[in-house]
Amino acid sequence: MGNRTTVNTFLLWGFSSFPDLQGLLFVMIFFCHVAILVANVSIMVAIKLSHNLHIPMYFFLSGLSLSETCTTIVVIPRMLVDLLSDSKTISLPECATQMFLFLSLAGNNCFIMVAMAYDRYTAIHNPLHYSIRMTHKICLRIMMASSVTGMVVSLCIVLIVFNLSFCDSSIIQHFFCDILPVASLACDYTLFQKMILLAFTSFVLVGSFTLIMISYVFIVLIVVKMPSAKGRYKAFSTCSSHLTVVCIHYGFSGFVHLRPKNSDSFHEDMLMSVTYTVLTPLLNPIVYSLRNKEMQIALGKVLDNVSRFFSQMVSKRALNTS
């Protein structure tokens, strides 16, 4: 790889086309990032502290919140620095590392959503044996398998992309090192390599989405046979939050990574990428907290404990000063 690469650094062009808006974009993205961290950490803390949420569905939700938080940490801090900096260069090893981490975590997110769909199918199909089929040990293995699969696919993609020869332009038309904006800069980016990268991307996005849809087809077949309307409503309500998150996540990701590309599409892809790197991790905890009463109660308890802690700190300081 080193013998054939003549470009050692890239320029993350990102939002440089909008110089007058970079200050506003910095403020908006910064506060979105803070909100993402607060929302997802609150979800994880609420699940950890609430014993009635120690079930597989919330275990996977906690894992998804952690994975999406890490995904934003890989991308957003660098984006914020570039918005304020005149030098937007990134070295080849840093670019490869960012791509590997982002794709690993993004793939992990997809496979966790598959696990959540399977969990809902198992709970609805055979609730009496649910605790036996979805033990904590099995859930941990599923989470580990999701993480390892994401890392393996990401490693394969990174090896293909950074084994290319970058000898012409070094300007990446994006705010982070995504697959196609980087690969399109290579001199020897052939149709065969395009098809291989598309196959890996489709394996993660299309493959995981297909498994989720298969789970929901079986769920619908089971639910429509339920004699009670109340039972049908309860079964569908347990799936509504997850299905909403799936539609948001795969809608944006599929538009960016699976539609036909040309030289003019990277600008649209960059703007659309903001949605699944900034908005989607923010919307997921909001969706689960708004549509789930158990989560609302748990988050309320966390907020009460936090407010009590700060009120005690203030009162102690007041006593010390007096």
Rank of each mutant, 00 (worst) to 15 (best):
D20L: 12
V204S: 03
T321L: 12
M116A: 07
M313P: 02
M79T: 13
V206L: 10
L290F: 12
K48P: 00
N284K: 11
G231Y: 04
S273E: 03
G231R: 06
H249D: 07
C239H: 04
H174L: 08
L164A: 00
T89G: 08
A318C: 08
S253K: 05
T280H: 07
E94H: 14
Y118A: 08
R141E: 01
I222D: 09
C70F: 15
S202W: 03
L103K: 05
Q312K: 12
P56S: 02
K225W: 06
L258G: 04
D188K: 03
A106P: 03
R308G: 05
S202A: 15
Y58S: 02
L49P: 05
K261Q: 09
C95T: 06
G300E: 06
L290D: 04
A235Q: 00
N52V: 13
M270N: 04
V81L: 14
I222V: 11
C247E: 07
L83D: 00
L49M: 11
A318K: 10
S202I: 06
G300D: 04
A199Q: 12
H249K: 09
G107R: 00
M57H: 14
P77H: 13
D178A: 08
W13D: 15
F192N: 13
R291T: 13
F102H: 09
N52C: 10
P19K: 03
F60H: 01
A96Q: 09
H267T: 10
T72G: 12
F175M: 01
H257M: 11
V45L: 13
G23V: 01
G14E: 04
T122I: 13
S215I: 07
L105M: 05
L103Q: 09
T277G: 06
R308T: 12
G14R: 02
N163E: 09
A235G: 01
C32K: 07
I142T: 06
D188G: 06
V182F: 06
K137A: 13
R259I: 11
L185C: 00
L290T: 12
I132G: 05
I124N: 01
N108P: 01
T280V: 12
G251H: 05
P127A: 12
R78N: 09
A186F: 00
S307Q: 09
H54T: 11
K48E: 11
Y121A: 08
I172P: 00
L11G: 07
L319E: 12
S215K: 02
R133L: 13
L92G: 03
V314N: 07
L299F: 06
V27F: 15
H249A: 12
L21A: 15
